[in-house]
Structures are given as C-alpha cells and as structure tokens.
Write a protein that binds this DNA or RNA. Structure first.
Length: 494
RNA sequence: GGUCGCGUGGCCGAGUGGCUAGGCAGAGCUCUGCAAAAGCUCGUACAGCGGUUCGAAUCCGCUCGCGACCUCCA
C-alpha cells in the first residue's frame, strides 16, 4: 500500500499527509442530495469526484466505509417551506412518494455514470429519534435555546465557550449579519447566525413529528452530524461535499459535533468545486442546469448533440475536483474524442500479452519511461486525487501501448516485469480508479443491418460458404437471421 | 461591503521557483492498394505593470477582468 497520499484539507487550508485514524479502515461521509427534484449535472460532479476518491482509497488497500446521506426532510426554502413538502403539495403526492421518486432517479443517474453505491445511505427521517436526542443534549448543555416552539443553536454562547464558529469557512461571527437575507423565523433568534436544530411546524406543514418542544421537524444541519457520528464515530477521517455546503452547512455541523461529542467530526474536510456554464455556477434557480438525461440525449437548447455518460465522466475527471469546471459543447466534443482514444488504448492493451523473445534486448529508455509513467499515475493521484494529471500520464502510456500494438515496440523490449506492470497499472487506473469503461460508440443495429446486407448479397450470389459463416457469426453474438419468403430480417435470439 | 478563489498557447486543462503535462483543433512526416487507425515531429503559452532571485507561469505588491460564498443549492 502506498501511503504517501496527500489531501487538501479545507479546515487547515493546506495539503496534508493522509493518516487514517484506524488503518486500514477509513470512514468517509459525503453530504448527499435533497431528493425533491431530479439531480442535475452539477450535483453529479460532486458525487463523481467522491466516487473516484472512494475508488482510489480502496485501490490503495483501505477498507472504506462510505456513508452518503439522503436528505428527505428539513431542507427549507427561503420562505420557510420544506422543499419536499412543497413538491408533494404541488404534485399532489405523499412526501415519501416524492422522496422515493427522486431517490430512485438519483440512484439511476449515479449508476448511469458508473458510480459505486456507498456502504451506507442513511436518511434524515430514519434518524429522527437520534436527532431529537442530540437537540435535548445541546439544550442540557446550554448550547441551544427554545423559542416559539423551535430550538436554535446558540452561536454566541458556543464561541464564548472557546470555540470558533467560522473556522472552516473563514467567517467572522460579527461580520455575519451584513448582507444576510431575510429568512423565516429570524426574529425568534437571539443572534442572526443562530441556526435551527428543531423547527416548529406550522398547521399546513405536512411533514411533522412530535417532540419535547411540540410538533415540528428537524433542522437541516443536524442530520449529518447525527448520522456521521452514528455510523463513523465522533471522530472519523473524511467529510466531503460541494463547496457551496461549506457555509453554513458544514460550519454548523462542526459546531453541533463539538458540543454533542466534543469532537469536530472529520479530520479532513474535502470540498469539490462547482460546475459552471459560461462561467456561472450551474443551479436550478438560475435555470442553467442540465439534467443528466438531457445531456445524454442532447435534448436541450444549449446542447449541440448528446454526450455519452462515459464521455461526461471523462470530461469531468479531466479537471481537478477543486477547480471550477466550465461546461461547453466544444470541451465535451474534445472529451468525446479523448475518451475514445483512451478506450482504444484500453482495448488494445487487453489484447496484449507478454511475448518472450531472447533475441531482443531490453530497451532501457523505453522500459524506464514506462516504469516512470506507472509511478506517475500513483504520484498524481496521491497528490490530492489529481485525476487530470493522471489522465495525462495514461495518455502517455497509451502511446506505448499503441506502439506495441502496431509492432513498433516489442513487449520483450520492456521486459516481463515492466510489461506486466504497465498492463496492471493501466487497467487499474482507467477502470478501477477512474471508473471509465468501454461503451459502444455506435448503435449496434446499424452494424447488424450492414452485416445482413452482406448476407443478402451472398445469398443472391449463392455463396453459401459465406452465408453459413455470416449466420454462424451473428448467432454467436445472439442475433438470428430470419430467412423468410418475404425477405431477410433479423431478431435477437430468444 | 466582508471572506475566498481564479485569469496558462486557437479551445479545454494540469503545473507553485530551474526538469516535455495531457487532450482537442491545425501543420508536416512514416506506415499504407485506398481509406482509416497508430506512431513521430512542430507551435513555444502563462491577464498587465513593477519587485525579490543567478533564475518566476510559479514568491511579493499594485492594476484590470472573472467567479464562488455571506443561512436555497453538490
């Protein structure tokens, strides 16, 4: 296991050596989606970034418990209405129907982009009791107060106790009032920065539960504190999420954790940057977001054509997770070609195996280059999961692979050890770590039609050897030729 | 207004003091029945100005431009 992995920790604002608390175990918590509508491509970017992080940690030999939650309650809109409730009312559905619909969508989309499901996917509603317990605890400790049936976290008291609300996001409490928006329940708070642990439910609010403070629902930030602690412990390794969650969401989590468990939660806080469109953050409220399905089909005014899931995955991984990634048709088109080049290399590699040749001497230069490129893949990923740089090294390896494929370089020139290392490394990084897989570039139907045409021609020319051969070939691939009086057609073998 | 970040060749995008990133597009060449694939070679870029240094895309300062967050967001 290579242990010189370094990660950028938002909490300390620097790259640090990654040292798990209990190796080989690693605990990682990532804030998942609020399931009130379809996930858009920006959401996907974040989860894909953590998918690669998850994959790489496993590749290094760590046993990772990856927890990614589903937010199904408590995430409010500006006017104080719950996102899920609002959607349920609009569509005349049970809130849990909304939750189920968009949880399914989320799962489908992540599968489409070849992401591995997390180890545990807990939901906020499923952990109401635990949340209520934490609210009680925070009240007991004097870190929260009840007001008009709601319970708020007392940020000033928290800071006076020697803590630093704002340590993650670099905010200063006294400056937090300026520019803040008018939000529901603001006048119930002692300080504008105080945040809800438990909210009283208005009569029309349909998502409601009993609590010691009356009927209500949990605050948004509480669920992540509760569920990360429950499944990973008070102190665990990695907490991730989008940059836009750093404040207030993660800041609040840290505050809650510090008070309820005495620990900040994660040692390393990782934040992924935003997907932008023409330089502006992609978001539903700005109306510049794409649904993954639209991207794949190309059915969107801003899209020239559809882009396959793996093209999109490749496109996203060509940029470091902490940089903004600007969406454009031109960039996607370039990625489409680049992705295919990499996949052609992958396919070539899979056909290659070591061929001993005593008459060939080891080409030290080539062997060293290949060996170095393999090292480079590791050093790139070890440097804060630099997938963009890793892909660059993989392209350089592709050139070596293609040189062998075309006969310009012999496996024996590399030596068996290096040749095998090249094969293992390339396969591991493309498929296992980056999660890229070969996907058909064209639709197979067109291909089958073309072969059927040849079949038809052979039949006309009574070239029965050819006819039999084509029929056998298609059958081997699960396609049967239908030779009817009316003509020739094909069907999938049943 | 506060906090933070960014500005790299035609495009995308790595790179934080000296060592070819890479992809796409373009040019040339090799291979080749044709076509393609593939390989090789090429452009010589770091917003502007000033400073530190033997040496700066990389550090410092200023200017310009862009963006994110500041209780909706991955």
């Amino acid at each position: 296991m290579l242990k010189n992995l370094r990660v950028y920790n938002s909490l300390t604002r620097q790259k640090e050596e990654f040292k798990p608390l209990n190796p080989p175990y690693v605990g990682m918590y990532v804030c998942g989606p609020t399931v009130y509508s379809n996930v858009h491509l920006g959401n996907v970017r974040t989860f894909m970034s953590f998918d690669v992080i998850y994959r790489y940690l496993m590749h290094l030999g760590y046993k990772v418990r990856y927890v990614r939650n589903i937010t199904d309650v408590g995430h409010l809109l500006d006017d104080g209405t719950d996102r899920i409730s609002k959607k349920a009312r609009l569509d005349n559905l049970e809130p849990m129907e909304v939750v189920q619909t968009y949880t399914n969508d989320f799962h489908d989309v992540m599968t489409l982009f070849n992401s591995i499901p997390p180890s545990i996917e807990p939901s906020a509603i499923g952990h109401l009791m635990e949340q209520i317990e934490v609210v009680k605890d925070l009240l007991d400790k004097g870190m929260a107060y009840e007001s008009e049936g709601s319970v708020y976290f007392d940020v000033e008291t928290y800071n006076k106790a020697g803590n630093n609300y704002g340590e993650l996001s670099g905010r200063v409490l006294d400056e937090l009032m300026a520019g803040s928006r008018d939000l529901d329940g603001q006048d119930e708070k002692r300080h504008p920065a105080d945040f809800a642990l438990w909210k009283k439910a208005s009569p029309e609010h349909i998502m409601r539960w009993d609590s010691p403070w009356g009927v209500g629902f949990p605050g948004w930030h509480l669920e992540c504190s509760v569920m990360s602690t429950k499944y990973l412990g008070a102190n665990f390794d990695i907490h991730g999420g989008g940059m836009d969650l750093k404040f207030p969401h993660h800041e609040c989590e840290i505050a809650q954790n510090c008070c309820s468990t005495g620990q900040k939660g994660a040692n390393y806080w990782l934040h992924t940057n935003m997907l932008t469109v023409n330089g502006t953050k992609m978001s539903k409220s700005l109306g510049n977001s794409f649904l993954p399905a639209e991207l794949v089909s190309g059915d969107h005014p801003m899209l020239d054509e559809g882009y396959s899931p793996m093209t999109v995955r490749f496109f996203m991984l060509q940029t470091h997770y902490s940089s903004t990634l600007d969406f454009s048709n031109e960039a996607l088109k370039a990625s489409k070609k680049g992705y295919r080049k990499l996949m052609n290399g992958l396919r070539n590699l899979k056909q290659l195996s070591y061929v001993p040749n005593e008459e060939v001497e080891i080409n030290e230069k080539q062997a060293n280059q290949v060996n170095k490129l393999c090292d480079n893949c590791y050093s790139a990923m070890n440097d804060d999961f630099n997938t963009a740089l890793t892909i660059g090294h993989l392209f350089n390896l592709t050139k070596k692979i293609n040189n062998i494929h075309t006969g310009n370089l012999q496996p024996a020139e590399l030596g068996e050890e290096i040749f095998n290392r090249m094969k293992e490394t390339f396969l591991a990084f493309t498929e296992e770590v980056l999660g890229l897989k070969d996907e058909p570039a064209t639709n197979t139907n067109g291909l089958i039609e073309g072969i059927i045409d040849m079949y038809r021609k052979a039949k006309t020319e009574k070239d029965y050897a050819q006819v039999d051969q084509i029929r056998a070939m298609l059958k081997a691939e699960g396609v049967v030729v239908k030779d009817m009086k009316s003509g020739i057609d094909w069907a999938y073998e049943e």
